[in-house]
Nucleic acid binder design. Structure first.
Lengths: 341, 341
DNA sequence: GATCCTTCTGTGAACGGTCACAGAAACCCC
DNA sequence: GGGGTTTCTGTGACCGTTCACAGAAGGATC
């Protein structure tokens, strides 16, 4: 297939008007479902649209309305994780469902470097999107500053820094972490460790805080292994590290299901039985949890609903119907007991 | 949709012209890096751009140039798989790399129902994208018809139906399947089965054909279990089914790594040792392969490069520099021997 | 029958860029 | 100094919509 050639000119609103014997204005009104159009004109226009194969030109509409009908879905994670993490995936699906339901296009943007960050900032300023859902922003994210400066309607998934006034949706990571740690301790574990991750984000920091809370005086800093990311390999190496530091460990709270899966494999390789020798719990209740052997006890997090809520919040801001509480909404979590404890 | 509130008016090309004391035309030329602009004017304009905080308006540019600077990335799979399948993810990353490198925005579109299909068709006709990369189209896909009708530059990942003249990139699924089956047989297996999937697509059908080829007269239809999708659970149930049909089975070709991972878990649950009792091979060399215990022998597929090649092909079509061979390019694959055989 | 709604329609001016064209300025060569 | 390039600049038309405004037609009310 060679030359792009001049694409065949497509039918415009004028062609439709001509064909239907009315004016552009009337056609526009029909297209946008406005009242005050006679049934007769409406019908003629609909027939004309079909006959000339008219499709609205979005660029022209965007220019005239100064809106793009697109919402950015911004993820601040390495590209790989964006695809691997089922949690982010579920949030994305939820957001997409709500957005496409209200005739908005979702545009995914991944930030994985300083360069990406600038590119995305430029993209946001360029009027490509009317609003944005921001996932896993860091506490010190420059993106949040950009958004505030441009006053683009945006909603965060996860708790923003205290100083920020951006709306958000999230879960009570601290409370949930406390709950699942208490469950773990409740199965009679004495030496409980944690494979933590992403401490530069609210989710990571809060999960560690909840863990510490639950253990109280029994908390031992030595039994906490820290990682950058919520990922499988971090679980594997983290577990090996933990076994070295404390061979007697009999309980592990992994900061995510993927980490737990890695930890389970490391434990198996080390000849420990789960749950007999060591109890393991995760966080997320993502597809990893059901892929584990044994099936993972974890915190169910309503990831899809988080995406839906965030998208709905952005749309509400766009319509100007946002309730005026800048604070965020917390969605419910609960502990799901399976076979690993 | 009610009032969105008047966003603060942003600087336009006219403001820049005024500020720099030149005309719109000259500003436009500088912005697009055209020659024939004096150093003096160029400098004044660059300063003015910074001073007024000018950002080009894409809708206006798109309208005038009749281009959108966006390329669709269309995946015809269930939403879940889109996120779970690391193979698709790698293709996506490759495509994105090439596209963002040449200043195009990639827009992902997932088709998961007849309704989605229509929505995407409308999207394509709406001039939202200048071209498209299409992944995992079915053999009878109506999408291909739409693309042909609109004559949108597009490239398929995977071999299209014989009748279609759309450019494509892919791998030799049949040859690769034959090669890995031969490897499996070469380790002394006598009763070799296959967990096949996605037979309605070229990849699935070709992998089965290659398997059949390799076995020759030893091929036994009874030892082929069929599934809809390339997914973990299909591997698990497929393996159980296979063990029921033929308890003596000592070799398994899984149509994807995810399927192989499921098969491995089912084999472990059934008390079979891998590779001692049963040899297992997969396909893709995705992140699943390294997550398996034992590590999976598989076919390495250059997924990322497939994405890059497909994107490059679309861009070439857009520029009109496409070589005039409508046929596709085959990328190399090779067998990676690890621990499971 | 004059007045006032309500319903419906057409028109011109944006929206913010690009592009072709015309013309000015500078340079070169005889 | 006249003619021909080459380099640089400004202008008006256009891309395909929406939107505000003006005005026509018809019905109800006095």
């Amino acid at each position: 297939m060679s030359t792009a050639g001049p694409r065949p000119r497509r039918a415009t609103i004028r062609d439709v008007a001509l064909e239907a014997g009315v004016s552009r204005g009337t056609v526009s009104r029909v297209l946008n479902g406005e009242p005050y159009v006679s049934a007769q004109a409406r019908e003629a226009i609909e027939r004309a649209v079909a006959r000339v194969g008219y499709v609205p030109n979005s660029a022209a509409r965007n220019l005239a309305t100064r809106r793009s009908q697109a919402i950015g879905f911004i993820v601040h994670e390495p590209h790989e994780l964006f695809l691997e993490d089922p949690n982010i995936g579920a949030i994305l699906l939820g957001a997409n469902r709500v957005l496409s339901g209200s005739d908005h296009q979702m545009v995914s943007l991944v930030i994985d470097s300083e360069r990406d960050s600038r590119r995305v900032a430029r993209y946001l300023s360029g009027g490509f999107v009317d609003g944005a859902v921001v996932v896993s922003a860091r506490q010190d994210d420059t993106l949040l500053t950009t958004i505030a400066r441009l006053s683009i309607p945006a909603t965060l998934v996860g708790r923003p820094p205290a100083t920020s006034r951006v709306p958000w949706v999230g879960i009570d990571n601290k409370g949930a972490a406390r709950a699942i740690t208490e469950h773990l301790v409740g199965t009679g574990r004495r030496r409980v460790g944690m494979i933590a991750a992403a401490l530069d984000r609210d989710s990571g920091a809060d999960r560690l805080a909840g863990f510490r809370d639950a253990l109280g005086p029994a908390f031992d800093r030595r039994l906490v292994v820290e990682n950058q990311l919520y990922e499988y390999t971090a679980g594997r190496t983290g577990m090996i590290e933990l076994l070295e530091r404390e061979p007697e460990v009999d309980g592990v709270f992994a900061a995510s299901d993927a980490i737990a899966a890695g930890a389970l494999d490391a434990l198996r390789a080390a000849g420990r039985r789960v749950p007999e020798d060591v109890g393991v719990v995760g966080f997320d209740d993502s597809s990893w949890a059901l892929r584990c052997q044994p099936l993972l006890t974890t915190v169910h997090q309503p990831a899809r609903q988080l995406g839906e809520a965030a998208a709905a919040s952005v749309l509400a801001q766009l319509r100007g119907t946002a309730t005026d509480e800048p604070a965020g909404g917390l969605l419910e979590t609960h502990v799901v007991v399976r076979e690993s404890t």
